[in-house]
Amino acid sequence: MRHAVRALGASMAAAAAGIAVLLAVAWLCGYPPAAVLRVFAQSVAGGADRLSATLLVACPLLLTGLGVCVAFRCGVWNIGAEGQYLVGALAACAVGIHLGTWPAWVAAPLTLLAGVVAGAIWAGLAAWLKLARRVQEVLSTILLNFVAIQLVAIMVHGPLADPLSAQRDTTSSIAAAARLPLLSSRHGLHAGVAIALLAAVGAWFFLRHTVPGLRLRIVGANPIAARLARLPVTGYTAGAFLLSGALAGLAGAVEIAGNSYYLTARYGAGYGYTAIAVAMLARLSPPAIVPAALFFAMLDTGVRGLQHADLEGAASFPTTLTFAAQGGVVLLVAWLAGPPKRTGET
């Protein structure tokens, strides 16, 4: 928990610095900082619908961020959360469309399960490549992202295409029974947000309080010592891949079952990539991933708000500034959370 608190402190500082960077860049580009800040805050949390919009973005970021965190903690550099997220969404959609005759208490969990399994399988491919063929996961996971993007496009244009859509670039909607219940029907806030929070608690409990969680951290921090302590290093490495992929796949399934209900040919919103920044900002501590995901969600909705706002006559606010701020935050975190100083012994 102390680790989480320290991580939280660093991430708050980095987040504040990130906002400052955003404002400074806006100011340099000729936008009045006070107005920018006001519009930003309003778009993030100005009323219940704005707040729930932020939470809806935070939800997939939280789940994918947890996935990245679990993998990194085991020394598995899975940067393929985006691909695992996409196949999760694809599987959830494919299953959810056909569950019209099932009761909701079966259909919705089954839809989520489809996403979990698909994400795990997608990460499992990279695990197999690493453990059997010695292919670096940094390479295989990012390449599998591209495969996943094309797979979604093929399925959306082909087998899953909505027969009523003229362009054939969306799927049919999933059955009503397969959808997640809404916590607030007016704002579209769905039960997936609660699932994501539960997953954060679960990930924290797993890593901190269970035997397999401790072993996963031992394998990640020193595989040589782990081998000498007779821990099955290969098994834990594979397990970290699967768990990480399952969480990213769950994120995709929750997005389908709770938010969009159907797939489009270009479904990815880059959550799987932002997830890496989320996990780093939280310094790989699950409790700190909750505020980290919220922060990046704020950045997203805040800047989207800026694009549409009238900023005292100035031209509309470019999206590129968000990316600049996001990059700035990640660098600041890397700087604030540098590795601990080693003692003099070599």
Binding site: L214, R217, I218, A221, N222, I224, A225, A226, L228, P340, E345
Partner: peptide, 14 residues
């Protein structure tokens, strides 16, 4: 000890 016996980022208790 640093390579084979200890997991340096983990706590003394762990």
């Amino acid at each position: 000890r640093q390579r084979e016996a200890l997991v340096l980022p983990l706590s003394v208790a762990e």
